[in-house]
Amino acid sequence: MSLKTRAQLRAARALLDWTQSDLAERCGLTSRSIHRLEDGDGILATKVETLHKLQAALEAAGVIFIPANGGGSGVRLRED
């Protein structure tokens, strides 16, 4: 599954208790870029490479992206 919505991005960051700056640092983007993705309509128009960076950083920290199953796409933390 992959990162599809800004709600998933915000939720994943919240599960990890990361600030926008924390996420930006871990995936090589700016805080401003994270802010635009979460608060604007930018996620659908975002470059695939940027989405891959975001997803890779979040998954490395334990986030699992859940496919839509009638209730919309979501996220959860991996059980260790």
Rank of each mutant, 00 (worst) to 15 (best):
A56F: 05
Q8S: 06
A56K: 10
L29P: 02
L3N: 02
L3G: 01
E49R: 14
N69G: 14
I66R: 07
A57K: 00
H52T: 07
H35R: 12
S73I: 05
R78F: 08
L51M: 10
W18S: 00
A24I: 03
E59R: 13
I34K: 02
D22A: 14
A56N: 04
N69V: 14
G71C: 10
S73V: 12
R76E: 14
S31H: 13
S73N: 10
M1E: 09
G40P: 07
Q20I: 01
L9D: 01
R6P: 04
G40E: 12
T46C: 15
L44A: 12
A56Y: 03
A57T: 03
R78H: 11
A7F: 08
R26P: 01
E25S: 11
L54D: 01
E38M: 07
H35N: 11
R26I: 07
G70L: 09
N69Y: 08
L9T: 01
S2H: 04
G28H: 11
D17I: 11
T19G: 14
T5C: 05
N69I: 11
K53W: 03
E49Q: 15
I66L: 15
G42I: 04
V48F: 13
R76P: 05
A14C: 03
A12W: 05
V75T: 14
I34A: 01
A7I: 10
C27S: 06
G74T: 15
A11G: 14
V63R: 01
L23C: 09
G70M: 07
L3Y: 06
G42E: 15
W18D: 00
K4Q: 11
D22N: 15
D41I: 06
T5L: 02
A7S: 09
I43R: 02
R76F: 12
T30Y: 10
R13Q: 03
P67S: 12
R32G: 12
D39E: 08
H35G: 08
K4R: 11
P67R: 04
I43K: 03
A24Y: 06
N69E: 15
R26V: 00
D80M: 09
I34N: 02
A68C: 09
W18A: 01
T30G: 14
G40Y: 07
T5N: 05
G42A: 15
A61N: 10
A57W: 07
L58R: 02
G72V: 09
G74S: 15
I66S: 10
V48R: 13
L77V: 13
D39Y: 05
L23G: 07
S2N: 11
D41A: 14
G72T: 00
A68S: 13
E59H: 07
A68H: 12
C27A: 04
K4W: 01
R78A: 15
S31W: 06
A56L: 09
I66C: 13
G72M: 08
L51R: 14
G74F: 09
I64G: 00
Q8R: 05
D80F: 13
R36C: 11
S31N: 14
E79I: 07
E79W: 02
